[in-house]
């Protein structure tokens, strides 16, 4: 009744699929913010939104080539980080949390507003900005490629390859930075800002650099995802997505270079398998599980993520693999 082979195949596809890439990039950004610098950015999805929409609007409304659109998306992420950081980075951590989640919601409301239809496409969103990306693909876009039962469409395979290359470059960048004296200052700030100030470091400047860097990773994630799906819909960029990325980060281990990537892969593997299992188990006239409605499976995903986030934070803040003594999150 349950098709375990397809469960596994779907799970493996999710392990390396576009969602895993997208959330890995969001979580790499959050790792710089939260894992290394202690900044609580709850609006990471807003950075993805300005990245994706920045690119889409630049290409569609201003007729720029795609590579320029990508640059616009990245610059949009930098600008958003500066705008959010200036008022909040001198204040206690939770102010940044509140302002970032509010800003992400503001951005979503604006892009989906009917009054913005001509500019951002309103609730319909945007399409048709990324055709030149698919033209670059070395694969046959319309063909299915089979890897031992795990199948990808050629156009997705191209996006996945590009996506993982971007993730790899991001990891190298983070690795170089966190083992440098720059990273040492960040880790010190996470632990005690005042101590770092007393040692002559401009804490505000470092926090701003971290916020911008992590925000750019978020924006790049948004760009990659928008190129993968070839469409931008405003309601995809809703606040819970940021919490998904947090869950992925904490699973893999905050404050570790590979944590966000491993976390994101595990997160989507598990989510795909439970999702598919529940869908299969609740479908049909005589379902295996009868007390859950087939239509509620989508909502159950959010409940599971919420519970996992809370439980992990309470009992294993160091993530699945981390050591308790290394965790830096319970400092304040």
């Amino acid at each position: 009744m349950i098709d375990f082979a397809s469960l596994l195949a779907n799970g493996i596809a999710a392990l390396v699929g576009p969602s895993a890439i997208f959330f890995a990039l969001l979580a790499i950004g959050l790792n710089v913010h939260f894992g290394y610098c202690g900044l609580l950015n709850f609006g990471q999805i807003g950075f993805a939104l300005v990245g994706g929409y920045g690119m889409g609007i630049a290409v569609l409304n201003f007729g720029l080539p795609l590579w320029a659109g990508v640059l616009v998306g990245i610059v949009a992420g930098v600008v958003l980080a500066l705008l959010l950081g200036i008022p909040t980075l001198r204040l206690r951590a939770d102010y940044l949390a509140i302002v970032t989640i509010a800003a992400a919601e503001i951005l979503r409301l604006i892009t989906r507003s009917t009054s913005m239809t001509d500019f951002s496409g309103g609730t319909q969103g945007l399409t048709g900005y990324g055709g030149s990306f698919r033209q670059l693909s070395p694969f046959d876009n319309g063909r299915f490629y089979d890897f031992y039962g795990v199948r990808f469409l050629g156009q997705d395979l191209w996006a996945i390859c590009v996506g993982w290359a971007v993730v790899g470059l991001s990891l190298i960048l983070v690795f170089l930075l966190v083992r440098s004296p720059w990273g040492r200052v960040l880790k010190a700030i996470r632990e005690d800002e005042d101590a770092v100030r007393a040692l002559g470091k401009n804490v505000f400047s470092y926090k701003m650099q971290a916020l911008v860097l992590g925000g750019v990773f978020g924006a790049v994630g948004g760009i990659v995802f928008a190129l993968t799906t070839q469409s931008l819909t405003p309601d995809f960029y809703s606040p819970p997505q940021t919490f998904f990325a947090y869950a992925a980060l904490i699973i893999g281990g905050a404050g570790r270079v590979f944590g966000p990537v491993i976390g994101s892969m595990i997160f989507w593997f598990v989510l795909s398998i439970t999702d598919n299992f529940l869908r299969q188990a609740t479908a049909g006239s005589n379902p295996l599980i009868s007390f859950i409605d087939n239509q509620d499976v989508g909502a159950i995903r959010f409940v599971l993520v919420g519970v996992a986030l809370a439980v992990l934070m309470a009992f294993r803040p160091q993530g699945i693999f981390g050591k308790r003594s290394e965790v830096l999150l319970d400092a304040r």
Partner: peptide
């Protein structure tokens, strides 16, 4: 420290 500047670190 040179390495404490973003560009310097890289």
């Amino acid at each position: 420290q040179t390495g404490e500047r973003f560009i310097g670190a890289l």
